[in-house]
């Protein structure tokens, strides 16, 4: 049993490259759809992690209108240092690489999603 758990833990995160973007595949899913992140190195200091369109679809569905729900989404996401892109319906975290590790950024995004994805209708 522990061997199987250990094997599955090795699949918790994986990173792939597509169209000059890095995609972090996570173990988290909403309604069967895997929650993945885009990772972009902005410059020599900053990186940015953001959710992908399937998260936007989820937020549209659970809140009815993510634009209307934006104040609540922002307030909850802020607890983790995560921001909300109201145009695209995406959570994102921009961070300085010498202040926050990639792992910390990934976990903060996951925590923000864990809370925000349960928001009721706006």
């Amino acid at each position: 049993m522990l061997r199987e758990i250990s094997k599955q833990l090795d699949t918790m995160y994986s990173v792939s490259e597509s169209c000059s973007e890095l995609c972090i595949r996570t173990h988290m899913s909403l309604d069967g759809n895997s929650m993945n992140f885009r990772f972009v190195q902005i410059d020599d200091k900053f990186s940015r992690i953001s959710t992908t369109p399937n998260f936007s679809e989820w937020m549209a569905c659970c809140t009815g209108s993510w634009k209307k729900a934006a104040p609540d989404i922002e307030k909850l996401a802020k607890l983790y240092g995560v921001e909300w892109d109201n145009e695209n319906g995406a959570l994102f975290l921009q961070f300085r690489r010498n202040e926050m590790s990639a792992a910390q950024a990934v976990m903060r995004m996951q925590q923000a999603i864990a809370v925000v994805c349960q928001l009721g209708p706006a």
Binding site: Y13, V15, Q41, S101
Partner: peptide
């Protein structure tokens, strides 16, 4: 940064001990 490096950075801190 490439995929392998980022994967490695993530696993350094999100890690298991068996």
């Amino acid at each position: 940064m490439d995929a392998q490096a980022l994967n490695s950075y993530i696993r350094q801190e999100i890690r298991k001990e068996v």
